[in-house]
């Protein structure tokens, strides 16, 4: 297993290089333009000047290699210099700079990470914690009232988009009842009970909206997989051996049912770092999702390239983790 993991990690490097190049190719081919947001009063020659100052005059492969060098060499070196306080070279290192904000992309990402982890990450945890018990009970008591209501809520929760549920919650809790703020304050520092309470209040709505969506999806896979396993021969054998139903379900069936759920969760974790574009927009959480979408709208190639690449690295990593977990959940799965 360890050898397999190491091999996969090594293989991830060329994979990510290829992915990063393809991403760059797509961003380059896309017909959006960094000067599109400027008012029409800015004449074309000035726009051309701006494009040149952003380095767009150079051929595509040069720009790609520049980005790669800045990202893979200069950024880690910069971080190292910051940590140690020692400067390895006299000339300042050129970091990956966003075109829109002219500030280092990595700093922007670090700035956005807390609210994204709090809101999107927490909603994912909440979603999983709701979904797994619901999935299990729905399967064990298939077609009971609990199952029917669970099915209804999760299907409606999944099919109604978050822009609608989010707006509905704002109308209810912010406008009519006035209980919760409709705008997330990223300046808020939790220092005491009052500010903690304020943080909780501003997180409730976005977390619930996203958690409902995530829980709906995961609980469906959980239920389906449990149902599949409940009718297997080994369950009958276990029951025949006189094991208690609870042990049968929670130990044997659950473990064997987790493979699809692990897959879904592993696919979802990188999404946390991708942010939740719509929910972040509605509640103005301004996390990584909002960073990405403003970057895309402004054709901010260095920003979008870096974010997408980090996202790709997480996808590769978590898919590897999922594969390793398969092996633990079902020892019969072998990779060698």
């Amino acid at each position: 297993m360890l050898a397999y993991a190491v091999r996969r990690l090594l293989f991830a490097i060329p994979t990510l290089l290829v992915i990063s190049f393809i991403i760059f190719l797509i961003l380059d081919l896309a017909p959006s333009d960094p000067t599109a947001n400027l008012p029409l009063t800015i004449p074309q020659d000035v726009r051309q000047q701006i494009r040149l100052s952003l380095g767009l005059g150079e051929p595509m492969h040069v720009r790609y290699l520049k980005w790669l060098y800045q990202f893979a060499v200069n950024e880690p070196m910069h971080a190292l210099e910051q940590l140690t306080g020692h400067h390895f070279s006299a000339t300042p290192r050129v970091r990956v700079l966003s075109w829109q904000t002219r500030s280092p992309v990595v700093d922007l990402i670090l700035q956005r990470l807390p609210q994204t982890l709090w809101v999107v990450g927490l909603s994912y945890v909440v979603g999983i914690l709701i979904a797994i018990p619901i999935g299990i009970v729905s399967a064990v008591r298939q077609y009971s009232w609990f199952d029917q209501i669970g099915t209804f809520v999760s299907m409606v929760g999944y099919s109604v988009p978050t822009f609608f549920t989010g707006l509905l919650m704002i109308m209810l809790f912010s406008v009519h009842l006035g209980w919760l703020p409709s705008i997330y304050d990223t300046n808020l520092r939790v220092t005491d009970v009052a500010s903690f309470w304020a943080q909780v209040k501003q997180m409730i709505m976005p977390v619930m909206v996203l958690a409902l969506f995530n829980a709906a999806q995961i609980s469906r896979y959980m239920r389906a997989s449990m149902l599949e396993n409940l009718t297997q021969d080994y369950v009958r054998t276990a029951r025949a051996k006189g094991m208690r139903e609870w042990v049968v379900v929670m130990v044997h069936v659950l473990r064997n049912s987790l493979i699809p759920v692990v897959t879904v969760i592993a696919l979802g974790v990188p999404q946390i770092f991708g942010g939740a574009i719509i929910t972040e927009q509605i509640f103005r959480v301004n996390g990584l999702g909002q960073l990405l979408i403003t970057g895309i709208q402004g054709a901010d190639i260095p920003l979008v390239q870096t974010l997408t690449f980090l996202f790709a690295a997480l996808i590769v990593l978590f898919n590897l983790i999922a594969d390793l977990l398969y092996g633990m959940l079902d020892p019969r799965i072998r990779y060698d």
Binding site: I22, I26, A30, P31, T308, F311, V316, N319
Partner: peptide, 25 residues
């Protein structure tokens, strides 16, 4: 397996919005 799953990783990682613009173009 290896090849297909790397392709899957690639598709998961692609930036959807710019990709759509390219497809449309």
């Amino acid at each position: 397996d290896g090849m297909l799953m790397r392709v899957t990783d690639l598709f998961l990682a692609l930036p959807i919005l710019p990709l759509l613009l390219v497809v449309i173009l």
